[in-house]
Design a protein around this nucleic acid. Structure first.
Lengths: 205, 205
DNA sequence: GCTAAAGTGGAGACCGTCTCCGTATAAGAT
DNA sequence: ATCTTATACGGAGACGGTCTCCACTTTAGC
């Protein structure tokens, strides 16, 4: 074996362990699980049976758990793109609207997202019990968005200087977690207006 | 049996089925379960094992489930008194404080209650999944309280006429459901102030 | 005391979670 | 084309929680 080629380090994507290319079936299964999960979560809520999801996706339970070790990991993966879109909307609003209206529009968009996929809200909150660090990135993205919007609105003088952006976010998550009653979306949007009104500089009394 | 006494309708508490007095042991067991549940819920959250609770209370699982057919029923029973106290505080504040401050004080008291017993908030919300009608009475009590406070504050001109009291309540429940981060109580109270500021009549702009 | 109504308790059926490991298969080397 | 081996698969089964069922016990009322 002294004639063997020198290490093909030129082709290696990763310098360290010289990894092998990921298997095609693994990738396929992962996507199928994700697909089925999305439907299952919207249909049955966050407590949908994972074994059922695995079955419907045509994979064994072991496969599902290998790709997504915990329920949280799965939820996070499912809603990662949604959260990214929501965070991205911040930029668009910031460009096309005056500061205060951009903030208002984004907050109402948040409500819309939660209305469609009501699992997002608990996913952004640490939720009851386990303080998993999995949602950290999602949280960071959303925090970044509202931070930018509030900062801009403060600079333009539309919002009190001492307002904590995170307070607003917490209120938003909270309001969104309460999903009872049919007129919830209207109520949530009225609340956005109240929150913004309450965040303006105190010109009165 | 023709000599038997005439129906002792005089002593009957209930006219219809002439019920027998409830058994002493049943009452005792019920209270023990309630006692243990209260501790278990504060220690392990709303998902504490019911079988464990039964075991610790020294009763069989069957007994627990007979008294409280569902988890919700048990939670409701445990926090019924707390909710009653909270609702009762409305009267006190209404007497001793000006309308707006009474509302503010009550809302902050709400936050304090939730901080101590973080299960109250989900109990007031329908929560994810099943729309059980069990919390109806609790909800009604709390709704009544905030309704009275808001109405008074509207009449004194401190609050916009078109404000939906239930919107405020929903925000409160929502904010209270978000229990992450150590400075949550401060944040929640800042939010109460924001909500109230946002509910004032629009003298500006 | 007697008796029927009321209540008890725990075995066990059921269901969801998650692990373990023997088997299958794709990727890369020859 | 075949071999080798890292990678992935899947489902049986251990585990733990929920909830029911019913043979047995206890109590209230006479």
């Amino acid at each position: 074996m002294s004639t063997k080629h020198p290490k093909p380090a030129v082709h290696a994507k990763r310098p360290k362990p010289a990894r092998r290319k990921p298997r095609a079936d693994a990738q396929r299964n992962r996507e199928r699980v994700l697909e089925v999960s999305k439907q299952a979560f919207t249909r049955y809520g966050a407590s949908a049976s994972l074994d059922d999801i695995a079955k419907e996706a045509g994979v064994g339970a072991g496969t599902l758990y290998r790709h997504f070790p915990t329920r949280d990991a799965l939820i996070e993966a499912v809603y990662r793109t949604e959260v990214e879109k929501l965070a991205a909307a911040e930029g668009k609003f910031a460009e096309s609207l005056p500061p205060l209206e951009a903030l208002r529009a984004w907050m109402k968009l948040f409500v819309d997202y939660v209305e469609a996929k009501h699992i997002i809200a608990p996913a952004l909150n640490t939720y009851a019990g386990g303080a998993s660090k999995l949602y950290e990135t999602s949280k960071t993205q959303i925090s970044g968005a509202i931070n930018a919007l509030v900062k801009r609105a403060i600079q333009s003088g539309d919002i009190r200087k001492d307002l904590e952006p995170f307070d607003l976010l917490r209120a938003l998550i909270g309001v969104a977690s309460v999903a009872s009653s049919p007129d919830w979306p209207q109520s949530a949007k009225r609340l956005v207006d109240i929150l913004i009104a309450g965040s303006r500089p105190t010109t009165q009394n």
